[in-house]
Amino acid sequence: MYATPSRARSAAVCAATLCAVGAMALPAVAAPSPSSAGVSPLDRQLLTAAHQGNLWEITTGQQARSGATTACVKRVGADLVRDHRTLDAGVTRTAARLGVTLPSGQTAAQLRQTAALKSLSGKAAYDAAWLKAQYPGHVQTLALIDKEIASGTNPTVKSLAKSARPVVARHIRMVDHGVCHA
């Protein structure tokens, strides 16, 4: 990536903040139901974080369609909506099959970030803010995916992570010095 030191530092701070807030926002893990036997805490964490991340990406992607000032950000937003709807369908199907209950909505931090972006809707600053907001969430998700692939215990969740990895990696390239930064 072609990150400046200040951009890299900002991204690291944002990612660390999202990780901390996201981890605190995760619901307590209840005792496993018989159908969720063989699902580790890491498997549950991936399913939960992926679902909430997908909900946020769909919401902010839809928001970009009307709030962005450039065709490029509108197009990337539409791509993210399409891809995260597909990813979330797999997450919700897998969670249901394994008896893992998913949260019904985004985290409080995600809702605040969505509101902050919405306040910029239609303004010149929106596009850069939207792209910047997308980066740390995708980086955090990719790190969790890699952790699941390496250490997860449920083969179905690991397979889901493996199939999501190239999509999330492509999104990172799109929003960090990608198609809209040319």
Score class of each variant (00 low, 15 high):
residue 177 H to L: 09
residue 144 L to Y: 01
residue 43 D to W: 02
residue 147 K to P: 01
residue 1 M to P: 06
residue 132 K to E: 11
residue 51 H to R: 13
residue 52 Q to I: 06
residue 113 Q to C: 07
residue 120 L to R: 08
residue 34 P to R: 15
residue 25 A to V: 03
residue 9 R to N: 09
residue 82 R to L: 12
residue 100 V to T: 02
residue 106 Q to I: 13
residue 127 D to L: 05
residue 16 A to R: 09
residue 8 A to L: 12
residue 102 L to H: 04
residue 40 S to V: 09
residue 7 R to G: 00
residue 156 T to W: 08
residue 48 T to Y: 06
residue 155 P to G: 11
residue 178 G to T: 05
residue 54 N to K: 06
residue 137 G to Y: 00
residue 181 H to S: 15
residue 23 A to V: 07
residue 18 L to A: 03
residue 98 L to M: 13
residue 60 T to K: 00
residue 92 T to I: 13
residue 166 P to Y: 11
residue 96 A to M: 12
residue 181 H to K: 13
residue 21 V to G: 06
residue 116 A to Q: 15
residue 122 G to R: 10
residue 16 A to T: 09
residue 43 D to E: 10
residue 69 T to F: 07
residue 79 D to P: 03
residue 51 H to D: 13
residue 61 G to R: 01
residue 29 V to W: 05
residue 32 P to S: 15
residue 178 G to K: 01
residue 12 A to T: 10
residue 117 L to Q: 03
residue 79 D to K: 14
residue 40 S to A: 13
residue 77 G to S: 06
residue 176 D to G: 00
residue 70 T to H: 11
residue 103 P to L: 09
residue 82 R to M: 11
residue 39 V to F: 04
residue 119 S to A: 15
residue 175 V to P: 00
residue 160 L to V: 05
residue 49 A to F: 08
residue 76 V to F: 08
residue 178 G to C: 07
residue 33 S to V: 14
residue 16 A to F: 06
residue 170 R to L: 12
residue 31 A to T: 15
residue 100 V to L: 03
residue 25 A to Y: 02
residue 127 D to R: 03
residue 102 L to T: 04
residue 25 A to N: 05
residue 168 V to E: 00
residue 113 Q to I: 04
residue 101 T to G: 04
residue 77 G to P: 00
residue 139 V to Q: 03
residue 26 L to R: 14
residue 157 V to P: 03
residue 154 N to A: 06
residue 121 S to M: 07
residue 130 W to L: 02
residue 94 T to N: 04
residue 97 R to V: 14
residue 164 A to Q: 13
residue 71 A to V: 11
residue 78 A to N: 10
residue 32 P to F: 10
residue 68 A to V: 05
residue 115 A to Y: 09
residue 28 A to Q: 12
residue 140 Q to G: 06
residue 6 S to Y: 11
residue 117 L to M: 10
residue 136 P to A: 00
residue 101 T to N: 03
residue 33 S to K: 15
residue 49 A to V: 14
residue 42 L to V: 05
residue 86 T to N: 08
residue 71 A to C: 06
residue 102 L to I: 08
residue 47 L to A: 04
residue 4 T to W: 06
residue 147 K to L: 13
residue 130 W to R: 01
residue 94 T to V: 08
residue 109 A to N: 10
residue 136 P to H: 00
residue 22 G to L: 00
residue 76 V to N: 04
residue 76 V to H: 04
residue 171 H to T: 04
residue 103 P to I: 05
residue 42 L to C: 06
residue 70 T to G: 12
residue 38 G to K: 13
residue 20 A to S: 11
residue 99 G to N: 08
residue 139 V to L: 12
residue 146 D to R: 08
residue 118 K to I: 01
residue 15 A to I: 00
residue 6 S to N: 15
residue 144 L to I: 11
residue 18 L to W: 00
residue 123 K to L: 11
residue 22 G to P: 00
residue 34 P to Q: 15
residue 162 K to N: 13
residue 88 D to H: 01
residue 47 L to Q: 01
residue 90 G to Q: 12
residue 103 P to E: 07
residue 157 V to Y: 03
residue 91 V to P: 02
residue 162 K to V: 14
residue 118 K to D: 11
residue 134 Q to P: 02
residue 84 H to K: 08
residue 140 Q to S: 12
residue 14 C to Y: 00
residue 109 A to F: 10
residue 179 V to R: 13
residue 178 G to W: 01
residue 142 L to H: 05
residue 97 R to T: 15
residue 135 Y to L: 07
residue 173 R to H: 09
residue 87 L to K: 09
residue 153 T to Q: 15
residue 120 L to T: 03
residue 7 R to L: 02
residue 134 Q to Y: 02
residue 58 I to E: 07
residue 78 A to W: 04
residue 56 W to V: 02
